[in-house]
Amino acid sequence: MADKRYDLNNYRWALVTGGSSGIGREFAIQLAQKGVNVIIVGRNAVALSEVADEIHKISNVSVVIIQADLTKDTDQVIDNTSRFEIDLLINNAGFGLYGDFVSHSEHEYENMVELNVKVLTKLARHYVEKMVKKEHGGIINIASVAGFFPIPHLSVYGATKAFVYSLSMSLWAELKDKNVHVLCVAPGPTETKFFERAKMKPGKRVMKPQEVVSGALQAFEYGKPLYIPGIENQLSYHLVRRLFGDKFIAKFLVKNF
């Protein structure tokens, strides 16, 4: 059976978390180009304003910016968006930390789990309820290829993204008959501020946010539950996981990553 199609022209408002830079910024811009009004959430008010200005140059859609730290202000964001009919949620906000497990504090890991898991789940729960009632809506959750493998030195980050992957696929199956589509996007290395915050150097092969987002939006419209940008990342998911067990992969990566 062919996947159901979803036309983004039918979505009025999109809420984009982590919308001030990188993948989130690109989602806001490309959705605006498709005629979707956008609400962008981030911690940097100046950067959010710059994204809004850029959108106004290319589109006549409405743009709302919300400065917020989602680890503290999730309820505030929900309250501030209550007057809008959110048709599409882009759960993009998140961060990682690179290094030995004991090289980072418990507080840093708690903040990562708070943002990558708890906030994402809370926002999904809130807006899905409204989408189900009107039988219309969608969610794009940003996971990572790190969520498919046991990756030493990115252990907690990978675990949070494994949660995002599992939650997204479960919700896709649960909600598809209610006309609420859920897409999990699992990028590999992408040209964002992730590496700076994670305190690690990017590899030689890094994708552009524009590529990731354009492919993700196309996958959403085609009704796909999972989108992995890049041929190498797709091969890793489909072949490496089948040919080698988690034990082998973890031992290999601890020496080579």
Rank of each mutant, 00 (worst) to 15 (best):
N256C: 11
C184K: 00
F27Q: 01
G99S: 13
S103T: 13
P150M: 13
F220Q: 04
L167F: 11
L31M: 00
N92S: 06
L15Y: 06
M112G: 08
Y127A: 08
S168N: 07
E191S: 13
S105I: 03
D7T: 01
E110L: 12
F163D: 05
P229L: 06
K247C: 05
S21N: 11
S155L: 14
H153S: 14
N80M: 14
S170V: 04
V64R: 12
R5F: 09
T190P: 04
A32Y: 00
I228C: 07
T17D: 08
T121H: 14
K34M: 07
V212Q: 09
G94N: 06
P225M: 02
A45S: 13
F248D: 10
G215Y: 05
T71V: 11
L183V: 00
W172T: 04
P150C: 12
S59R: 04
N179V: 00
A162E: 12
I140G: 10
L115P: 06
A219L: 03
G137P: 03
V213T: 08
S21E: 15
V16Y: 02
I140A: 10
D69V: 01
I86R: 04
T17L: 06
L154P: 09
S62D: 11
M1W: 05
R197I: 15
T71H: 03
H104R: 14
P202W: 02
A45P: 00
S214R: 12
N233I: 02
E110R: 15
V77A: 04
I249K: 12
A47L: 08
K204H: 10
T160S: 14
A146D: 12
L217T: 03
Y227N: 05
N37S: 09
R43W: 01
H238C: 06
I228R: 07
D7G: 02
Y227P: 05
L115C: 09
Y127E: 07
I228F: 09
R242G: 13
T160F: 10
V102C: 12
A52V: 00
E211V: 10
Y109G: 08
K247E: 15
A186R: 02
V36K: 00
K224A: 07
K255P: 06
N256R: 15
L217H: 06
G147P: 10
E26Q: 15
F244P: 07
R25L: 07
S105A: 07
M207D: 15
S214Y: 04
S155T: 15
M207H: 08
T192W: 07
N111F: 02
I86P: 01
F101D: 10
T160E: 09
N256S: 15
L253K: 11
K204L: 14
A14V: 04
V38H: 06
V38C: 02
S62N: 14
